[in-house]
């Protein structure tokens, strides 16, 4: 896929909304278009996979397994980011990513992207700002999950119509 096409594709992703054109071009120069079939494992827990993905179609679920149990903890789809931990120095994956619906994505080598951020601070800041937004929304969602809001109310808690 030519760089022009990658730029066009990248422009449609919310991650680069508000990015300067030269930053989009720089990001596109590091991108590779990838596809994953249904049930493919994009990475496993403990993998040193260093790729960061922007998803354009399909869906991926993050899973954690152990002691004969498996949990699906988050679904990601079109317009979202996968593998943000590849942008941090310790890159071992904490979850397994399984494809639920065939995926089209742009993949970025995390180490190369980090180097580009180091070399061009304005570019690095633009990418970091966007990653912070991603991490912040994931943290908010994780906190809401931790609250276990739909668990039965404790005895003596205020009554609810329909509860």
């Amino acid at each position: 896929m030519s760089t022009e096409n990658l730029v066009d594709m990248l422009r449609t992703h919310p991650f680069v909304e508000g990015c300067r054109p030269e930053h989009i071009e720089k990001l596109a120069s590091m991108a590779a278009r990838v596809q994953f079939e249904k049930n493919a494992i994009i990475f496993r827990e403990g993998d040193e996979s260093s790729f960061f993905y922007l998803l354009f179609s399909g869906s991926v679920v993050l899973e954690i397994t152990g002691a004969g149990r498996a949990h699906r903890i988050q679904t990601l789809g079109k317009g979202e980011e996968l593998g943000w931990s590849s942008m941090t120095p310790s890159m071992a994956k904490k979850f397994q990513a399984r494809v639920l619906e065939p995926v089209t994505a742009l993949a970025f080598d995390g180490a190369r992207l980090r180097r580009a951020c180091d070399e061009d601070c304005a570019f690095g800041y633009a990418i970091t700002q966007r990653l912070l937004e991603t991490i912040s929304s994931r943290l908010q969602a994780a906190r809401m999950q931790l609250l276990d809001l739909y668990a039965p109310a404790k005895m003596g808690a205020p009554g609810k119509p329909g509860a």
Partner: peptide, 19 residues
């Protein structure tokens, strides 16, 4: 909020459906 392996639907808090 939590799905097992047999669940193929969406996993995440309800606000993640807004997109």
């Amino acid at each position: 909020d939590y799905g097992g392996l047999s669940w193929h639907g969406h996993v995440g808090v309800v606000t993640t459906l807004f997109r």
